[in-house]
């Protein structure tokens, strides 16, 4: 590694360098050990929930109602021999995937286009305002988005976008009162787009100016030069941004717990427009909503199982992102 970055040992080894190396190395090891310990802990706790249910835990065809099952687990008798573990978590997994995927797809489009605007087209004055605002937005705590969601967005959906006839059509099955996966995905998009914009802006800036100038000198206009050269070269960074945003979206709990409807309902795409305003509850929000029940052993183990699924998805996500980035790098000669 040292050679790759052109840092060679200069003369006799410096003692304070040596000390720093040891200290930083030890810190890195501690972090690694902490992560390994955490993974082990979560899986150790989650194991009974998985073994009792097998494939049915994940299966879309397992049937059962996740909410009824959660209540049954929570009300398990005190005797460990009679603990209830039945959990078919598909509706919660489905809600997680649905909300995350929707938000990431929309925000990727938005982020790339706005980053292009900020880097290439925005007048200096606008850029000076826009960039700090984007970075500020990326740092707003999620509970504030949740509050805005409940007080403004959910209310607006309920009052103006959802027809009374639509509400009547599903009465007794699902409450269409604005609390919905659609609102959750919408606010999540607003939450993760700033992060992606910040990363993509940095990437577009670091594309060598000569590449773009080359294409412009061949007679291509600015838009095409940007789209075919800069954005192409920045593809690995766009993937990295999307991975980071997805990780944040997967783990988002408080905001989604506040606006998505608090029901383990499975929104159905064939319902037409109603689909977007149907309630749901993703895994992370389920953990937050039920954290109070951690004192009941089988219930805690079920919550840890949710956590384990999120942990594994996050791991797969970074491996997938790393693999795609490597592939893209081979074709784009990207400097990033």
């Amino acid at each position: 590694m040292r050679r790759r970055f052109g840092l060679q040992k200069a003369g006799p080894r410096n003692r304070s360098d040596q000390r720093a190396e040891l200290l930083l190395g030890a810190l890195a090891c501690v972090v690694l050990a902490l992560i390994a310990g955490m993974i082990f802990f979560v899986f150790e706790k989650a194991w009974p929930s998985f073994t009792h249910n097998g494939v049915a835990w994940f299966s879309p065809w397992a049937g059962g109602n996740a909410d009824d099952e959660l209540v049954a687990i929570f009300q398990s008798p005190g005797d460990p021999a009679h603990y209830v573990y039945t959990m078919h978590a598909w509706p919660l997994i489905y809600a997680t995937v649905l909300i995350t995927a929707t938000a990431v797809v929309i925000s990727t489009v938005f982020a790339v286009l706005s980053a292009m605007f900020i880097v290439e087209f925005a007048p200096a004055g606008i850029r000076r305002v826009l960039e700090p605002v984007v970075r500020l937005l990326a740092a707003v705590p999620s509970v504030i988005y949740g509050l805005i969601g409940i007080l403004v967005v959910v209310k607006f959906f309920n009052d103006h976008l959802i027809a009374q006839s639509a509400k009547d059509s599903v009465a007794g099955v699902a409450a269409l009162n604005g609390f919905s996966w659609g609102v959750g995905a919408l606010i999540l998009t607003v939450m993760i787009t700033p992060i992606m914009i910040a990363i993509v802006v940095d990437a577009l800036r670091s594309v060598p100016i000569g590449w773009k100038e080359g294409s412009v000198s061949l007679g291509v206009n600015r838009w095409r030069a940007l789209w075919t050269v800069s954005v192409r070269a920045a593809r690995p960074a766009i993937v990295a941004a999307a991975v980071l945003a997805t990780a944040r979206a997967l783990g988002e709990a408080i905001m989604l717990s506040m606006v998505t409807g608090s029901v383990g309902f499975q929104p159905n795409p064939i319902d037409g427009f109603i689909f977007f305003i149907e309630p749901a509850r993703p895994l992370a929000a389920t953990i937050v909503d039920n954290a109070e029940g951690l004192s009941v052993t089988p219930f805690a183990q079920t919550l840890y199982a949710f956590a384990a699924v999120l942990l594994v998805s996050a791991a797969f996500l970074s491996f997938g992102g790393w693999y795609i980035r490597r592939r893209l790098r081979a074709y784009t000669l990207s400097p990033i």
């Binding site: 209540v71 509400k167 409450a175 039920n290 219930f299």
Partner: peptide
């Protein structure tokens, strides 16, 4: 019109 019943989580 339809009724929207709103309650608390099982743990409360």
């Amino acid at each position: 019109g339809g009724i929207d019943p709103i309650g608390r989580a099982a743990t409360s």
